[in-house]
Design a protein around this nucleic acid. Sequence first.
DNA 1: ATTCTAACA
DNA 2: TGTTAGCA
Length: 120
Amino acid sequence: MRIGELSRRTGVNERLLRYYEQQGLLRPDRLPSGYRVYRESDVVTVHRIRALLAAGLSTAVISQVLPCVRDDGERLVPTCQDLLGQLRRERDRMTTAIEELETSRSLLDVVITAGRSATD
DNA sequence: ATTCTAACA
DNA sequence: TGTTAGCA
């Protein structure tokens, strides 16, 4: 199928589908015309990409994760050696980001509180 | 009619 | 990301 059909079947617009390819998430074949040709499995792949993106992973990480997951019907199961370690590192990165945001929020609360007592 | 690349009020 | 231009 070409990009138009994949777009319709996944709900992801063509612009984004081309972007995913640039990020190494999709590798469609090309017709002599230059048109991208996607395989049936790409419909599933696009949905996986959406799921992984929603999980907060970067496209760089996803490009490594995609070829290393098996679909047991409902969940994505890691199949490669180092993948699990990589995912744990990503989780740690998220934890750090959350902690930094919490710090920023506390700092902001101080400002907000000061502003309230000054203007009220 | 569709897709492609490149680029920008 | 949208959108448009100019092709094939």
